[in-house]
Write a protein that binds this DNA or RNA. Sequence first.
RNA 1: GUGGGUAUAGCGGAGUGGUUACCGCGCAAGAUUGUGGCUCUUGAGAUCGUGGGUUCAAUUCCCACUAUCCACC
Length: 378
Amino acid sequence: MWYNVVMYKILGMENRAKRAVLATLRGEIHTPVFMNVATAAAIKGALSAFDLENVGCQIALANTYHLHLRPGDELVRKLGGLGRFMAWKKPTITDSGGFQVFSLAKLRKIKEEGVYFSSHIDGRKIFMGSEESMQIQSNLGSTIAMAFDECAPYPATREYMLDSVARTTRWLIRSKAKMDELNAALAEKQLLFGINQGGTFADIRIEHAKEISKLELDGYAIGGLAVGESHSEMYRILDEVVPHLPQNKPTYLMGVGTPQNILEAVERGVDFFDCVLPARNARHGHVYTSKGKLNLLNATYTDDDTPLDENCTCDTCTHFTRAYIRHLFKAKELLAMRLCVMHNLYFYNNLMAEIRLAIENGNFASFKQNCLAAWSRD
RNA sequence: GUGGGUAUAGCGGAGUGGUUACCGCGCAAGAUUGUGGCUCUUGAGAUCGUGGGUUCAAUUCCCACUAUCCACC
């Protein structure tokens, strides 16, 4: 029988920045890694699993809440699980629904047992607690499941945060118990990552990090950042909390971020990332290049016959001009989004590959400075 | 040819005898961090078809012209 014997092996370091590999039955994940976001089992912008392969994706992220509502996790299970459903053979991760507690704040009520949502699709009542989230993620069959948490709003009072984090801890203990129960019957065990919360209160963050570190989870995420606080606050929290998470396990900064954010976080010891920014910006004509961000909708690109990024080797940059893609946006052709999403995801995945190489070569610090200087027009 | 309607920003439409003429789309510049392709913010752009008349004051009321639409020969 197969067992998902997971190994997390650190291959290189430069100060806190670490180069590591997480081995799973679905394949290895080389870190630092950017996980490409496929909320509803597809990258928005008309990309398929084939395209994900082309842009250098190692692991795709889908969402528990969204897939539970539509098409339903039982259906996905019947059809062979998330990976088979979307024809993606490499590792997958599912977000637990905790972020929807934040992003769908007007449509939910938080109770001790879990969260009552009104479906944003048809309004019907949905209950999700730790057990429900784990069951759904088990049905989806993702390689990595995330614990159910509350992504608390910013700003929040200290009193609110203390209550929220204590509840998130109780939910985490329930998540782990349920996942252990579900995994007991499975050959290919699902990994479980816990989530640190505490907003911008460093002491609450640290206390929580120490507490959840005792649970021997497969990885640890930092949630509840990039929700409105300043970049310097985010970096300050990373400086404070990362040292209190297990260093022999993956550290995942959820929902972050810009290329600059990623470099700063890698330097502080983070090795997993996910963010909607490259795909969403691409859909709106904002693309990342080795010389900074540019907005294709700007009139200046009307007759620009150069590629998005002259240093990029993605399919978009090797075939199409800025003028053509700008025209596609103006004409509202879906191809505009598709080409830009492919480019931006390639840019992010390639950035991570360059970061890994820099860490291996022991020159991450100078690599980071060079990048920040080159992007300074942002 | 006859009768009737209409003319306001690039386009489609509101509106008023009295400070700076409004809205949508489009255009231009932003925002977007565990995804709404949605949305939001800001800006530019108009001698109110042309000429004349009434009036203290006309984009608004009157006349002619031009353009355009509809109906009828």
